[in-house]
Design a protein around this nucleic acid. Structure first.
Length: 280
DNA sequence: GGTTGACCTGCGCA
DNA sequence: CTGCGCAGGTCAA
């Protein structure tokens, strides 16, 4: 049973179920079953180490998946004094980590995420694996989902998202290199590159960059971020935000690691007591 | 260039 | 049991 001594706190529940990945299922005794890349695996923490049951996964793969190379609080340190909310979020959830999810899997998840709650995205994800997945229910390739087509994708309860997913799968099955992002590209460039794909807009492109490419300056704005920014930073604002404005604002407010700020604030806001949040 | 509807489905709640 | 509102957005007019 391989294991790895953790260099920092790790909260598996908030990290694996908080809306970055959708392939994990909680088991009794605080274990989690899911996949890292093509490898099915069960995880659990014990004595400040993480243990896993699939020896096909190396320590460095686990290390990479949970971004254990990053010291989150020191990255955000310069912006904590001016952001008490962020300081609170990091204090309450010190073990929440940014994942480095498989890019294709992540892209599919977020194409399916439109107007869906986390629990339902997880259901769709599970159906895609069980219906179209390979051995060990590994996540279906672009070619496999392209071959499946819109109609059979709709049978996985994707609704209108099926059309976008089928089209994107078709494109990526023929041009797999479009998932490769040169490190010389800016995050903004990479986002525009992904937005060429059907069903991928500014929100999803940035989710994929943040949750699977480790682009910590990607700042996805969804309805939750919209709500928390309104409540915590712009209590008087009524009109809708301009995305371009939020891009520069978040840069100034949270710095080059503003994606981490998004991750922490998003999780804190979503899990805080309902009466402290605005009524939808 | 910014606005406005349409778009599937499943769940919670009256 | 039936109906209605709503939910990690994107696209096209």
């Amino acid at each position: 049973m391989p294991s790895l001594l953790l260099p920092c706190p790790l909260d598996l529940t908030s990290t694996l179920l908080g809306g970055q990945s959708f392939s994990w299922n909680p088991l009794p005794r605080s274990r989690f079953a899911g996949w890292i890349g093509p490898h099915p695996v069960q995880l659990h923490l014990h004595h400040e180490s993480i243990h896993w049951d699939n020896s096909a996964l190396s320590s460095s793969q686990i290390h990479h998946y949970f971004s254990l190379d990053l010291n989150l609080s020191s990255l955000l340190q310069p912006h904590l004094p001016t952001n008490p909310h962020l300081a609170t979020a990091i204090q309450l959830h010190p073990g929440l980590r940014p994942l480095r999810e498989n890019p294709w899997e992540c892209l599919v998840n977020f194409i399916c995420s439109s107007l869906k709650q986390i629990t339902h995205i997880r259901q769709i994800h599970a159906r895609l694996r069980s219906t179209f997945g390979g051995p060990n229910q590994s996540f279906p390739s672009p070619a496999r989902l392209a071959e499946a087509g819109e109609l059979s994708l709709r049978k996985c309860a994707l609704g209108y998202r099926a059309k976008h997913l089928a089209a994107t799968a078709q494109i990526l099955s023929q041009e797999p290199h479009r998932l490769e992002i040169p490190s010389s590209w800016s995050t903004e460039q990479a986002a525009q590159h992904f937005e060429q794909l059907p069903g991928v807009g500014p929100k999803i492109s940035r989710c994929v960059l943040l949750y699977s490419y480790g682009r910590l300056d990607a700042f996805p704005v969804d309805v939750w971020v919209d709500r928390l920014l309104r409540q915590l930073y712009f209590p008087k604002k009524r009109k809708p935000f301009r995305l371009a404005h939020l891009e520069t604002w978040s840069q100034k407010q949270f710095g080059p690691f503003r994606g981490l700020a998004q991750l922490l604030l998003f999780h804190w806001f979503r899990t805080s007591t309902p009466h402290s949040r605005p009524r939808p």
